[in-house]
Design a protein around this nucleic acid. Structure first.
Lengths: 336, 336
DNA sequence: CTTTTTTGCTAAAACGTTTAATTAATTATT
DNA sequence: AATAATTAATTAAACGTTTTAGCAAAAAAG
């Protein structure tokens, strides 16, 4: 036997579709359905194992109660955690989440926005790719509720939930300077994304203020060549004449590879070299030297993104969405 | 301006809905639409930025081209990777994936199956919770295509993609015995799930065959108390009189906590104690002692699950689904 | 004992597709 | 020249909801 519909229930009870629908949506007051009939309908619905058809519902009311989430890489723990919290929170508002991946590919970003649009998601939460700006602009032009997370495009009118990357970086570098570092390297992705630029700027500003800025200590890594690029970068920074006494890793993937290389080279941490990483990692619990790291408030990021989005979705669809940019603070912590 | 529909395109061109639909679905041959008209329609559709409404489509054709994926914990890297590969593969068949979490809660499992059912997913890929069997049975009773992954319920007629947990365990234990271990402990979840039972059975059988089985060396951990339980279990195994010279960790989360504890206690690995873990971890690259681990073929698991499911979904909806149980082999590897 | 209000329900349209059944016009076949 | 076949489209119903407007009966008010 196929799926039970409202019509089926209506027939069995001998009442109209409308009455059943009203009751099952808790609008019995509004529809003035008698208490007895309402109870009878609810009982029968349960008995017949009725489950609403959200396709039909979505078609009719023009909403699908679904959020489209586009992340750069679900197998990266940072994004996996983010996805987890977004989902948990979305559920509280009655939304399901469709998670999709871009693998940092702009092409895939275009594809994923299209797939999700055609599934009538009510809104988007997006970790955009480097040149994904046009696709975000398209969403906004179409007046589809959209919230950027982790990364944003400052020059377009998009709501976003970010951490204060500049100050995170400043915090990290100040701490290194205070601990006596004078030749601090930085390993960062080569990217035009604003959050990377901010992290770099924080580094630059602190070091310049202390008169110890040296641009040749910034190593920019190609995402496509990450493993070998990091190895080379670390080795280059460790050249004797450079006298590097600190390295700041701008993302968790860079940290992992960097630390691996530092261990291979038997670098004396923290005595000869101090390191600060972006993001916490399980790995920190297993290495014999202390690591400082910038902790991002992942649960709050997810929570805020969902709330921003829900607010946007609530607004009457005609009006221009109000742009809200949320910036959360990070914490600088020590692994032990 | 709101979303462009087929009707809009039809009006602009001055033709019927049907013609536009036929063309946009590539059925122009079937519907005998002239080449010129077809081209005109396609061009106009592109120009007007038409995007199909999959809610309407799904409602009409009774399928949503969506797979519901239920995992135990998306923030666990094993499941995150699995989700990643399932998604990549599903996409090739034109399916989107809605990922949801249960956090090992049976209640949530029920909720998630309901949510996904009401979203008319065409099929389910499920990592079931310990007592989630009734919900899987319900899906099967309703003739909804379903594939279990990572865990299964042998007594119900459900298709599944598993690794050969018994032989994985046998492989691990044989290797430890061959390396001279005689008092081997095991740390495993207290669970009635078949894959856990199989892993335990592999342990038992190998050790019994060698006459070195000692049930008091099996430590069963409560999922809700995992951190302290593992600490206690490790300490208990390391009591002098036990003379334990090997520990087998039955899951990645147990491995992580166990290794942490072993490091805290400064155990001499691998000289005094050998360890084998289930699943690979990033952490292995960062610890100073070698670890053996069972590697599960995550990409193949995802691929097989999607293919099984797609096959089920292709079958005419009336017929009883053929049950296929796929068992993949694992590899025993060394971290270095 | 009218009139008004309230109560309890129904009819029917709409959302955007797909698709089977027709129709009408043109071309091919005898 | 009549008939058959092909081509190029159309019509209209259906999928399962939601929701507005309306109707009839009962209850309340005057």
């Amino acid at each position: 036997m196929s799926r039970v519909s409202i019509k089926n229930i209506a027939q069995v009870i001998g009442v109209s579709n409308a009455t059943v629908s009203l009751v099952l949506n808790g609008k019995e007051k509004d529809g003035r359905v008698s208490k007895e009939m309402a109870d009878r309908i609810r009982k029968m619905a349960k008995e017949m194992n009725y489950e609403p058809n959200n396709l039909a519902r979505g078609l009719r009311i023009g909403r699908s109660q679904t959020i489209g989430l586009i992340v750069a890489d679900i197998s990266n723990l940072f994004f996996a955690n983010l996805a987890f919290h977004i989902q948990e929170h979305a559920e509280k508002f009655g939304y399901s989440v469709i998670i999709t991946n871009t693998n940092e590919s702009d092409l895939k970003m275009e594809k994923m926005t299209n797939i999700l649009k055609s599934r009538s998601v009510d809104g988007f939460i997006v970790v955009p790719t480097e040149y994904g700006q046009p696709y975000v602009e398209d969403l906004i032009k179409r007046n589809i509720p959209t919230v950027l997370i982790d990364r944003n495009f400052p020059e377009i009118a998009a709501s976003s939930v970010m951490v204060d990357n500049y100050n995170a970086s400043v915090k990290a570098l100040k701490s290194m300077v205070n601990q006596g570092c004078r030749n601090i390297g930085m390993i960062i992705y080569k990217s035009e994304l604003q959050h990377m630029i901010d992290r770099k700027q924080g580094y630059t500003d602190v070091l310049e203020k202390h008169g110890i800025y040296n641009p040749s200590l910034i190593k920019e890594i190609n995402y496509s060549n990450i493993t070998s690029d990091v190895e080379i970068a670390v080795e280059s920074l460790l050249l004797k004449e450079r006298n590097v006494d600190g390295i700041f890793f701008a993302t968790n993937s860079l940290s992992m590879l960097g630390i691996k290389q530092l261990m291979k080279l038997n670098v004396d941490i923290p005595n000869k070299l101090k390191i600060v990483c972006f993001d916490k990692s399980d790995v920190f619990d297993f290495i014999q030297f202390p690591v400082s790291y910038i902790q991002q408030p992942i649960p709050e990021m997810g929570k805020n993104a969902v709330e921003l989005l829900v607010n946007q979705m609530k607004q009457t669809s005609g009006t221009q969405k109000k742009v809200q940019r949320i910036e959360l603070q990070t914490e600088l912590l020590d692994s032990f």
